[in-house]
């Protein structure tokens, strides 16, 4: 029953996204623009750009995640739609997991294009496709879980568009560090053990999933 509710909420958010085309028309161009601008800024110093590719990629993902989470939050705050979820009696944990899953899928779709972007724009080469894919998957789950949780926390705040990045970016700092190190290894730009950093990302994701599943009900009621 819980899984059915998770799928129901995720499918609803993805259908809304498909209709509104926010990811395709706004989030994706924004992500590519950030990559292009980073490229302009550092292209004159090619070794620096090569060494910073992983970090630039994940900084761009952080920016994109803010937009995706804001969109996900606004779906429920517009016209009191959140009330419908409460009245329907959907388990808050299922709402959280469904919304986080929808955000994660959107971010993963954007990251696929962004990986293509760093290969074309930064002339990056991939040495370990397995590590790169695993990093994207694990880091994105953590970003989506933390983002969805904080999105619910600021849902009732009048200036949530500006409050969310202030809260979310520091929380995502471990993801930025871990995913960048793992990407450095996957791209072969820095000699580190990327798989070890993946453990940090997995821990971050697990903590935020558990925290979100436990706390989302309270946030749904109070905000």
């Amino acid at each position: 029953m819980m899984l059915a509710d998770v799928l129901l909420v995720a499918a609803k958010d993805l259908r809304i996204e498909w209709r509104s085309r926010v990811t395709v028309s706004q989030v994706l161009p924004f992500a590519l623009l950030v990559l292009v601008l980073f490229g302009f800024a550092l292209d004159a110093n090619r070794p620096v750009l090569d060494a910073a590719t992983g970090g630039l990629f994940w900084v761009a993902v952080m920016f994109v995640s803010i937009v995706a989470v804001q969109r996900s939050t606004s779906i429920e705050t517009t016209d009191g739609a959140r009330r419908a979820l409460l009245l329907a009696g959907v388990e808050p944990a299922a709402v959280f997991l469904g919304k986080a899953a929808a955000v994660a899928l959107q971010l993963l779709a954007v990251e696929v294009v962004m990986v293509g972007g760093v290969i074309v724009l930064y002339d990056a080469s991939i040495e370990s496709i397995g590590l790169l894919v695993a990093t994207c998957l694990v880091a994105t789950v953590g970003i989506a879980a933390a983002g969805t949780l904080l999105g619910a926390l600021v849902a009732g705040v009048r200036a949530r568009e500006t409050v969310l990045p202030i809260l979310l970016l520091p929380v995502l700092a471990p993801v930025l560090i871990g995913a960048t190190r793992a990407f450095d290894d996957a791209l072969g730009t820095v000699a580190v053990d990327g798989w070890a950093w993946l453990g940090l990302l997995a821990g971050f994701g697990a903590i935020n999933i558990v925290l979100g599943a436990l706390a989302y009900g309270v946030l749904l009621e109070e905000t």
């Binding site: 609803k12 259908r15 809304i16 016209d79 009191g80 739609a81 959140r82 009330r83 419908a84």
Partner: peptide
């Protein structure tokens, strides 16, 4: 069954 001031509907559906 509650009908409130807002309609609690999703605009894009």
């Amino acid at each position: 069954g509650l009908l409130g001031h807002d309609t609690a509907l999703y605009d894009d559906l």
